[in-house]
Amino acid sequence: MRDMTSSEKVFVIGPDQISALPPERFSVGTGEELRVVLVVLPGVSPVIPMTFDLVGEGASVRVSALYLAAGSGKVRFDVLMHHRAPHTTSTQLFNGIAGGEASTVFSGRIIIDEGTFGIDAGQENHNILVSDRARAESDPQLEIYADDVKCSHGATVGRLDEQEQFYMRSRGIPEDEARFLQLLSFASPVLQSLPDHCREAVSSRVSSAIRSLLAQ
């Protein structure tokens, strides 16, 4: 058996901490495992196209993204997950929070080529709107040309759960703090997937971004 080679890439995109945008194309070869974590902070309006080509047998991709949009910010993802080889797997988690008059778009396409088999592809896009004027759009597209495929996707756009809020407030947690905790818990699966060396620093930036977003 070949050894898996694993690589991990983190992109934090914000007004004063721009790691460059991710490359537009990632190619993942035989036995390779690629993990990508993306965090978009409020104050920027990026368009982020990303194509993942799973070209070698057993290639695997895991993408986790958290995007916070505030003010009149606009965030757009155009993601293509292209399974070109057998036994390739991909998971995508895109969690977005929009406040103010911000708008976000997640356009995510999964293509599974003819002649491949043993494919496992999953895509989740969840959005929380924290103001009446914020907008989030989710556009998943699946193109499956093979038979032996496991493919799942889920998309939601919603507001903070009022039952949770009342539960927290009934324990004396002020409304703003309750909303903060809810958003932090929504962000948590992406923050947990950050590598150890930067998890704390990025989480703390996200946490202050959430507070400022709620103050709008």
């Binding site: 009342f166 004396g172 699966p189």
Partner: peptide
């Protein structure tokens, strides 16, 4: 019917309260 709050630990919840 106590409410479930995934992502918020009992410790953090009670600390805030």
């Amino acid at each position: 019917y106590p409410i479930e709050i995934p992502g918020v630990t009992i410790t953090n919840f009670m600390k805030a309260a």
